[in-house]
Structures are given as structure tokens and as C-alpha cells.
Amino acid sequence: MNRKQRITIIISLVIITCVFIVWMFSGMEIFTKTQVLVEKKDELFGTTYKEWKDQFIWGLDLTAAVSGAVIVSASILLWIFRRKK
């Protein structure tokens, strides 16, 4: 394995690790969400009701997609950087 290939693998592993860390800190949701339900208080009736709030939540599906793209890209680069005999 040459230097360029080693760097490619290291960068790929770092990106995949970062993506998984983002997913873990985002609540480890299975599916990516673009809206979440938030509770609001109805002062007049003293009850609570819910509303959709635009909020992006990183899910495992997006993590898998990004990881997959990194693996494919890394594989292509590894082949490009192979030592030609």
C-alpha cells in the first residue's frame, strides 16, 4: 500500500467516524427528519397542544448513505492511486 492509499483510507475512516458521531449526538434516530413536534401551552384552556417545527435531525439512513458514498469514493481513489508496474 503506498502513501496516497494510506492517506485515502485514513481520511475515509475519519469521515465515517465523524458521521457516526454526528448521528449519535443527534439522538440516534433511524430515519432523518425535517420536522419535529413541539408542545405549546394554551393559556386560555390550560391545555397543551402540538405544532410542527422545522428542524433537521440526522438519521441512520443519511449516515449510511454518506458512509456508503465515502466507501465508494475511497475505493475508486485506492484503485487510481495503485502503483502501476
Binding site: 434516530e29 433511524i30 430515519f31 413536534l37 394554551d42 397542544y49 402540538k50 405544532e51 410542527w52
Partner: peptide, 19 residues
């Protein structure tokens, strides 16, 4: 939009909230 009906489903795989 004040009036609403919500539903909630929970399984080991995921929780689903609807409105």
C-alpha cells in the same frame, strides 16, 4: 391550525408521531 388530532406508535425499531 389550533385544533388537532395526534397519534403515536412505538416499537423497538422506531417511534412515530403524527398530527
Amino acid at each position: 391550525g389550533r385544533n388537532q388530532a395526534t397519534f403515536f406508535s412505538t416499537t423497538p425499531l422506531e417511534d412515530v408521531n403524527g398530527l
